[in-house]
């Protein structure tokens, strides 16, 4: 194990903060600031705020730094790992969730900005054992392979249908193009969305 050089600027030598490591996980005590109300947030590196997020119908308090994305709050703090991170920069759609019913790439929005919103993730779509019609349609039409994009595709599809952008295969192809599928199940995704949309209309 490396050690601290003791030099004023610990250059040239890599430094472990030996104490923190050898203490077997006694992490640095975080400096915590509690936000007084929704939207009021502490700033500064390392400072955290407790925010309340409403996810899948449950209100949950979560302590985050202001820079934490909604995606990382869901995955790393709330244990909702059904939402996936593919690119962390708004390009793939794997992290799509619904915020007040609209599809949002959760890697492009901060958790602190979404206090007071109703967030729906893939875990919140089924009613108990009963799958959402879009989830069922995805299985029926084999609209996934590896599943890496699937949570995002399904959330996006739910919104796409709600928006009225699932009127034809051509329309679905365009309005589902913000969600990449590297396995390229695209024809089956279109079929699943069209099928679920038909059900939603009837």
């Amino acid at each position: 194990m490396a050690e601290s050089t003791g030099a004023a600027r610990p250059t040239r030598r890599t430094v472990l903060k030996t104490a923190a490591v050898t203490a077997g996980g006694a992490a640095l005590a975080p400096r915590t600031a509690v936000a007084a109300g929704a939207g009021e947030v502490a700033a500064g590196p390392g400072e955290t705020a407790v925010v309340t997020l409403s996810v899948n119908g449950k209100r949950r308090a979560v302590e985050v730094e202001p820079r934490v994305t909604l995606l990382d709050a869901l995955r790393e703090r709330l244990g909702l790992t059904g939402t996936k991170k593919g690119c962390d920069r708004g390009e793939c759609g794997a992290c799509t969730v619904l915020v007040d019913g609209e599809r949002v790439k959760s890697c492009l929005t901060l958790a602190v900005m979404r206090q007071g919103s109703e967030i729906t993730t893939i875990e919140g779509l089924a009613q108990g054992e009963r799958l959402h019609p879009v989830q069922e349609a995805f299985i029926r039409h084999d609209a996934f392979q590896c599943g890496g994009c699937t949570s995002g595709q399904i959330m996006s599809a739910v919104a796409c249908i709600d928006e009225g952008h699932a009127g034809s295969d051509q329309e679905i192809r365009e309005w589902m193009s913000g969600n990449l599928c590297r396995c390229a199940c695209y024809q089956n995704i279109v079929a699943a969305v069209a099928d679920a949309a038909k059900g939603a209309r009837s």
Binding site: T11, R12, T14, V15, L16, K17, A20, V21, A27, L28
Partner: peptide
Amino acid sequence: LRIDASAALAHPGVVAVLTHRD
């Protein structure tokens, strides 16, 4: 030639910066 980890180590929550020496 040189790796300066001081700023990283000063950042809250950073526990270690490991290089080829470690």
